[in-house]
């Protein structure tokens, strides 16, 4: 169903915020599919904007962004059919009495036609997805009453239960407890290994997913660097983005970064 095997093909992309400032400019890069890709950069560096543009939610001011050969403007709906998206957690409205199962089932039901009844197969797959993030016991619990980390796990399960060859997550680890972080990272790693899917993750903090990431895109309104995690973990590169306080720590053969942006991470 895909037109090319480039997960991303971005040419001279520029995107403006509604206030006229450039969120992104002169963005050029390609990433081959399948990949486990991380998009990192400080606050306001255009990470989420890049994703939303790729999904056809925002129109580029200049240039093009293609996913699997499909142009975000012309073929946005084709991209949306391939994608399962985990938005930032605070995008989810909490004044609606949704149960965990209602949220988790959205992943499957959104790709059906109205009236979108959940078949027993939908329920079974959704239950399995919740198991992967250890939330199966919360099936009938109200979603708004969960903790932040638990809500995030449900949203990841919603994506795991869905269909589509590309999984896109916007800051899935932001503000989560260590246990949720571990469960989410493990579930994603496991899923990526056993399924033919690409995973694209926007994150403040590369360290928790460092080991499994194939491509890292370092962004600050434009591409600062792209490559394997250890090549991005370069002091010169990171100080350029995060300022002079950025440091690299080597531990057990891997490089980890310490920035004032994300703080030091728990790494045993």
């Amino acid at each position: 169903m895909s037109k090319s095997n480039l997960l991303f093909d971005v040419q001279d992309l520029a995107v403006k915020y509604p206030n006229g400032d450039f969120a992104l400019h002169h963005v050029n890069f390609t990433v081959e599919s399948p990949s486990f890709m991380a998009i990192i950069g400080p606050n306001g560096s255009g990470k989420s904007t890049l994703l939303k543009t790729a999904l056809g939610l925002i129109r580029p001011t200049r240039g093009t962004i293609k996913m699997m050969g499909y142009d975000s403007v012309r073929d946005g709906h084709k991209i949306q059919r391939m994608v399962r998206y985990v938005p930032q957690r605070d995008q989810i409205g909490l004044n609606i009495p949704m149960k965990v199962k209602d949220i988790a089932l959205m992943g499957r039901l959104l790709k059906k036609r109205p009236p979108r009844f959940a078949s027993s197969k939908d329920k079974e797959i959704t239950r399995q997805a919740l198991e992967k993030v250890d939330m199966q016991d919360f099936w009938d619990r109200p979603f708004p009453e969960l903790s932040g980390g638990q809500r995030q796990r449900v949203l990841v399960a919603r994506a795991l239960a869905g269909k589509g060859s590309i999984l896109i997550l916007d800051e899935p680890l932001a503000g989560t407890d260590a246990e949720s972080q571990r469960l989410i990272v493990d579930a994603l790693e496991d899923y990526h290994k056993n399924n033919d899917v690409s995973i694209v993750m926007v994150t403040h903090d590369l360290n928790p997913i460092h080991r499994m990431v194939k491509n890292v895109l370092l962004l600050k309104r434009t591409v600062i660097g792209i490559g394997a995690p250890c090549s991005i973990m370069d002091v010169d590169l990171l100080t350029k983005v995060y300022g002079p306080t950025a440091r690299i720590v080597e531990y057990a053969g891997h490089r980890y970064c310490v920035t004032h942006d994300s703080g030091m991470d728990r790494h045993e």
Partner: peptide
Amino acid sequence: ALLFNKEYVYVSVDMEGSIAHGL
């Protein structure tokens, strides 16, 4: 309401995610 209650709820609970999934 019988036909589209899920869509109404999805739009209210997660507009961005719904669009991204092709709704």
